[in-house]
Design a protein around this nucleic acid. Structure first.
Lengths: 249, 249
DNA sequence: CGTGTAGTTGATAGTGCTCAATTTTAGTGG
DNA sequence: CCACTAAAATTGAGCACTATCAACTACACG
């Protein structure tokens, strides 16, 4: 980073880190991202960050902790359609969609930053490359969602859980906040059930089975992956869809 | 359309129609879309339009028929993660992702148009509004995928099928090629099973049940929805996620 | 020490899968 | 136009995976 550019706010580092794993960023671009006005807010687990069917005027980004996208059905059941980690510009989608087709909720304690649409527009029009990187971030979200569709459609409960653990680890690593196969994972089993389209009881039982393989453990809000390769193999996990390669975009 | 602008090629009308259901397009923008070079190609059912793991240099758009995104698993099973209808700019995603994390296949006989990345870049940089609309098209894809995640995670087999029928009808209507509750649907039951994450046998049995409700029928490659509202109610279908509203984007 | 949440266990039922066979439909060449 | 063939749709039987319901335990917090 040039000594003449001010350092971006610490809160934005995971986002910059995440983009930096996908393409080169110029100093000017880093500064431009740093210039985004950011309204920070904290949420307790389960609370609503953005309401379904609302029309927000800002997009939100996860700064610390986890957030998710939630869909409620008529019968009261719920599906969490995405899990977002620090650095994810979660609601860039609504910048274009205008109306929320889903809610955004905090999963575990979570700090979120809100960026007004006007600033997003200014930055993307001012710098085409950055505009494409913002676009890229939504398109990576879509790729992750496709992987989840395959996961829910064709994998067993045990495989789905293993897949979630593999993916979450790599994404946290890409955001620069996990290494050595360990990461904080402050979800309840109910939340994991809603992520994986399973019942809590079944999540509990398959988790015990996964533990007994020795490949991975999840206790007290921490996941430890003891053998990533074999876990990935079990889950049919192929990280291509995370686009973790530096490419000119 | 201004009498001084040349009409866009017929092949692009579904795309223009689809965008026109989401925002107003100026004559100039329609002309700019019409200026995109389009290499057309036909595919027979099941053939590969774009290979998984490849690095294409053009994005493809469905002109006629259906296309889908496919994921193959190690054990040979397959999940189709998206169904695309005429007007869908399917592989705008790869414009940013660079490497295909999935394949694109023809579902039924299908005509596809290929647009080189250079032209996409030119158009989106030349006209910021059109750039946002291209972005929007990928973000709507993502919204549809989220709805599918909920569908696979929380709905019964019968509901999933009903949901697919409701969604496909509205999308075809938005592309200007379906009305009156009827549309061509040249999929095999195997393909529907791979879309819904079910076995063929089960698709067949639930389909018979759906038929017996009288709400919908699917025979000889044609779907007839006899009571959309009740079918949508059965499927817990809410079209919000399709963004079928004209908004300044 | 009481209360609430999260995690765990048992028992039972249901939904959807697999395997295997049969019927129907569509396409092909004679 | 018919016989032949392959693909698609359908049916039956048995089984596996996952859900539901209802307790019960463990732990954190005031």
């Amino acid at each position: 980073m040039s000594e003449f550019e001010p350092a971006p706010p610490t809160a934005l580092l995971p986002f910059i880190h995440m983009l930096g794993r996908r393409d080169r960023l110029s100093d000017e671009e880093v500064a431009l991202i740093g210039s985004l006005p950011l309204r920070k807010e904290r949420f307790t687990s389960g609370s609503e960050v953005i309401a379904e069917d609302s029309r927000p005027g800002e997009s939100c980004m996860v700064l610390r902790g986890f957030a998710g996208r939630s869909h409620y059905l008529k019968d009261g059941s719920r599906q969490i359609t995405a899990l977002h980690v620090p650095g994810d510009f979660v609601d860039l989608h609504a910048y274009l969609l205008k109306v929320m087709d889903h809610g955004v909720i905090a999963i575990g304690a979570c700090e979120v930053g809100f960026v007004p649409y006007g600033s997003i527009r200014r930055v993307t029009e001012e710098n085409h490359h950055l505009g494409r990187l913002f676009w890229l971030s939504t398109v990576i979200d879509a790729a992750i969602q496709r992987a989840w569709i395959t996961c829910l459609g064709r994998l067993s409960a045990e495989q789905r859980m293993a897949h979630l653990f593999c993916e979450t680890y790599l994404r946290l690593e890409a955001a620069g906040i996990a290494s050595g196969g360990q990461f904080l994972f402050p979800l309840t089993q109910v939340q994991v059930a809603d992520l994986l389209g399973l019942s809590v009881v079944h999540v509990n039982r398959r988790l015990q089975e996964l533990r007994s393989t020795g490949l991975v453990d999840w206790r007290n809000g921490t996941i430890s992956i003891h053998d990533f390769d074999r876990l990935a193999d079990l889950a049919d996990f192929d990280p291509t869809y995370l686009s973790l390669r530096i490419e000119p975009r």
